[in-house]
Design a protein around this nucleic acid. Sequence first.
RNA 1: GCGGGCGUGGUGAAACUGGUAGACGCGCUGGACUCAAAAUCCAGUUCCGAGAGGAGUGUCGGUUCGAUUCCGACCGCCCGCACCA
Length: 862
Amino acid sequence: MSRYATKETEAKWQAAWADQKVFTAKIDPSKPKYYVLEMFPYPSGRLHMGHVRNYAMGDLTARYKRARGFNVLHPMGWDAFGLPAENAAMQNKRHPAEWTYANIDSMRAQFGQLGVSFDWERELATCHPQYFRHEQKMFLDFWKNGLAYRKKSYVNWDPVENTVLANEQVVDGKGWRSGAPVERRELNQWFLKITDYADDLLSAITTLDRWPDRVRVMQENWIGKSQGAQLNFALTEASRKPGFEAVEVYTTRPDTVFGASFLAIAANHPLALALAKTDSAAAEFIAECNRLGTSEAVIEQAEKLGYRTGLFVSNPFVPGQELPVYLANFVLMEYGTGALFGCPAHDQRDFDFATKYNLPIVTVVRPREADASYTVGTGPFTDDGVLLNSGFLDGLTVAEAKKAACEQIEKLGIGTVKTQYRLRDWGVSRQRYWGCPIPVIHCPSCGPVAVPDDQLPVTLPEDVTFDAPGNPLDRHPTWKHVACPTCGTPATRETDTLDTFFESSWYFLRFASPRAEEAFDKDAVAYWLPVDQYIGGVEHAVLHLLYSRFFTRALQQCGYVDMKEPFAGLFTQGMVCHQTYKSADGQWLFPTDVRQDEAGAFIEITTGQASTPGRVEKMSKSKKNVIDPDEIIGAYGADAARLFVLSDSPPERDFEWTTAGIDGAWRYVNRLWRLATEPAADKPLAAYGAALPDKIDGAADKLLRLTHKTIRDVTDGLEQFHFNKSVALIRELTNAAEDLTGTDAASAWVRRFALVSVIRLIAPMMPHVTEEIWAYLGHSPEGMLVNQPWPSFDPALTVDTNVTIALQVNGKMRGTLELPRDITQAAAETAALADASVQRALDGRAPKKIILVPNRLINVVG
RNA sequence: GCGGGCGUGGUGAAACUGGUAGACGCGCUGGACUCAAAAUCCAGUUCCGAGAGGAGUGUCGGUUCGAUUCCGACCGCCCGCACCA
């Protein structure tokens, strides 16, 4: 029995596709275009199984759409800036560029072995000056158009590393590498004005009808629109300070102003800072808050604390009522006005605060069914209800009272109706070397000045060291010292680089014309964009996808492109998981370090000791539950690996890698190969080009009809991203083709038709073995399988002449009947009542009613 | 707490708008081939029951001739958001 030779065959076809430039995309206005894009990878050096799954799906889509007659664009590039390169530089004394480009080379080779249909002529790497020179221009254009600005902002500062940390890099309030407590520090940072587009980004979500609901919901939550009022609480005479007449607060519950019992302001609120100058206890409290860091997880865990300032404000709705002003560690300067009023009776947090500091709790909303004597008890009442103890609002519902309160606020001239967003402007400054330099020069007399066009790109100096903490750009002896482009006096370059989300916010546009002198060739963008199908992990549901949506709008505003939504269709695939194992002393073990003994117990191979199997979790280096794609491709070939990751689970769900699963896929590859090359004596295949037999009936006719049905259903499955169902249908057809015996011409012809249909349907998943079988079966004169159109089906042959109908009595299954299609009610009744099991179940009773669902079932009610 | 999703054999999962639950795969059991093993092939595999038959899609209830599917209550799991004023 011959085994299919994966290595030689896969390499052969990969070379053939490349030689004929099969996947090179060219603009062709006569054909409909289809842009398939998988999120481009960070060049870590090796593909992991998550990549294999992601790119198997993208490649399937690209190859399928090509066969359907689309002009497909399927490019690949590298998200090449980022921290790991700097970490590697520190550990291995290798320059980040050298390390990155070497990684790109090895990953490109791995993609080649997988047989993914990329157009490599469009390859780009974001760390290349020919890429980021456009990005620097964009940044400057954003600045000119008011979409980029500089402001002081609080960051997570690692005092040992001398750098800013992202929130994810802060673990338990400490730097992930240094272990030093993270500080809140105020730095001058560049921001992009994503908030300008908050409302548009939110309302346009409804147009993204080919995006998963959950991603749309996540973006809605992230933008976090709320409607409310901004209003002033005047400071009492005794509390006034120069420049502070009142405290402005934001509220979504203007209906509860009558129930206010305190004001709370952020520790870094201007009033708090003014107060700190004369009040050392307040200054102490503020310093304590700043030690907390800015990570939301940290803030959440911290105890809610207040400091009573001794200042008072007047309640604008209750003449004469004075409310104490607190500094509070839970009030965020970044949201609203950095100040709020507390209404303990109708808000959980305010209730807790009031209880802790013994503040009054005034009930101003009662449940509809309660009477006017209602007061809140052990907790706040936060539902809808009716107002009381609230002067002109009494008797109104919450919604009516909000409206009335807002009108009153505007009439009194103390505030306005205000829509607020949770979304904040995008901070893009990073104190890092391996990123795109921000093309700005700081001049002592002119301030920040744009680097002139003819001096772009600003490139990174290569002679840098990573042996000291902090930013190598900042401590480089010469790089930052330049003359001011405006006045010529000595000035310094901006030493921060851009957040790497910047590069990934426009690469999908650059792919349309990757070698164009301008950032974008207008015709190419007009033809290829938007991306028809974007595929990637759900972990990018908010940041990358929201930034890209904003960026496209910003580019439109600056005249670069004429569109605002970059991704028409989005698919988020699940993670690749694997069982974890621990050794006897509690260390993680690689799956390859563990075997099972005869009894099924897990044994650590090197020590012979028992190993404990743990949960099935996302493959990660730290838990060692990883499988190296190279080893799998070496042992089983790319086709088996691709088939397995597509066949076992719905693509949006997590996928568990198992040895048994890849074995099963491997068996199928070989089975197909044998069916084509060594058919059994009683199961011959017709010769290439054999004429359609005059008569096909019996079992051969059934297989013929099943083949047409399968072509229809597999196509539907692929259109809907139900890859696992399509695989199941193809395997079913394979089984049926193998089950048909007979050496007659009709059987041989149909058997061949079924088998050829199988390889054509599964070719987008397993492109190599199917190409080989196609050639083996004599189709070479028609050209390669990769260039064949998608198989079509004959609707007339997707229905059977006879159908199997379920037979029920009172809704319970009593058997099945083989009947001609579309029989009449009368014929169905006769057939059903003649059935022995129906008579037994009726037990002599007369049928009251007989329900016929055409070609499906007959239900006798009796 | 708010929002979204999910719960089906030993296991990954199918079942279109209510109409034969468990397709397809994995595993397992038995058999064939083999000196033997691997590979391959054949048969079986939801549970109880020898059988007829009965039960069964997280739990309880409802609608219906008929419910994995629709409605109500509950239990459990996953994901996102959250001192957001």
